[in-house]
Simulated scan of single mutants.
Amino acid sequence: MSSWGKYKANESGKNSWSQEEAFEKLTTFCAYQERCPWEIRRKLYEKGIIDEKAEQLITELIAEEFVNEERYARAFARGKFRLKKWGRNRIRMELKMKEFSEELIRKGLSEIDPEEYYDTLLTQTEKKWESTHESDSFKKKYKVTQYLMTRGFEMDLVKEAIESLISDQSQ
């Protein structure tokens, strides 16, 4: 049996939880890894719990320290940068999608060390440059720039990193 236990089917055929069962399941869900209210609302919606009941559960989880948006934003930014090599723009966009305030997004992004960020950008630029097989240097620069932009790195830093790489290779 899954960690979500036994369910009773509601009218729509979806599995649903009682309020007590939901709180118990959500504490496990939140203890496993950092969660934000947006993710919890999604999980509750899947189980047929919406509106005031969902908000009441989220309020309880926040009160019990199972959910902390600042802690989540900081962990999310650190993890996506270090593990997935995402840039600030991509991290910002993902947090906005999860309905985080600008203040919390800024706090999350403050977890990224500027020197480590630029070193990561240079490493990613070099890797992509080496793996891009394009004889036309203009097209190659374009492809590498597009790749780094989709990873969420800022255009000015991407241009700087590519120029740095090209000047190092020509010396």
Rank of each mutant, 00 (worst) to 15 (best):
S2C: 12
S3L: 09
S3Q: 13
S3A: 08
G5V: 02
G5D: 11
Y7T: 02
N10R: 12
N10F: 12
E11S: 15
E11Y: 07
S12D: 12
G13R: 09
K14Y: 06
S18G: 11
S18R: 14
Q19W: 10
Q19F: 14
Q19S: 07
Q19N: 13
E20P: 12
E21T: 06
A22V: 00
E24T: 06
K25D: 07
K25N: 05
K25E: 04
T27F: 14
F29R: 09
C30N: 04
A31G: 11
A31P: 09
E34H: 14
C36R: 04
C36E: 08
C36L: 01
I40Y: 00
I40M: 03
K43F: 02
Y45A: 14
E46R: 12
K47L: 12
G48A: 11
I50Q: 15
I50W: 13
E52S: 12
E52K: 11
K53G: 07
A54K: 01
A54G: 05
A54P: 03
Q56P: 02
Q56T: 10
L57M: 03
L57G: 00
L57V: 03
I58E: 02
E60M: 10
E60W: 08
E60K: 15
L61A: 01
I62Q: 14
A63K: 10
A63R: 13
E64L: 13
E65M: 15
E65V: 05
F66G: 02
V67L: 05
V67R: 07
N68Y: 01
E69P: 10
E69I: 06
R71Q: 10
Y72L: 02
Y72D: 10
Y72N: 11
R74Q: 09
A77Q: 03
F81C: 00
F81Y: 04
R82Y: 00
R82H: 07
K85N: 06
K85E: 03
W86P: 03
W86F: 05
G87L: 06
R88G: 14
R88F: 09
N89E: 12
N89S: 04
E94T: 08
L95D: 02
K96R: 09
E99Q: 01
F100A: 02
E102T: 05
E103S: 11
E103H: 07
I105A: 02
K107S: 03
L109W: 10
L109K: 05
S110G: 06
S110F: 01
S110T: 11
E111M: 05
I112E: 01
D113M: 09
D113W: 06
E115F: 15
E116D: 15
E116N: 15
Y117W: 06
L121C: 01
L122P: 01
L122K: 10
L122C: 11
Q124G: 11
T125D: 02
T125C: 05
T125E: 04
T125Q: 05
E126C: 07
K127R: 01
K128R: 12
T132V: 06
H133Y: 05
E134K: 04
E134W: 00
S135C: 03
S135T: 03
D136M: 05
S137I: 13
F138N: 09
Y142W: 15
K143C: 15
K143Y: 14
T145R: 13
Q146K: 15
L148H: 14
T150M: 05
T150R: 10
R151S: 04
G152Y: 05
E154Y: 05
M155G: 13
M155R: 11
K159Q: 12
E160I: 02
E160Y: 06
E160L: 07
A161W: 00
I166M: 12
D168C: 08
Q169T: 15
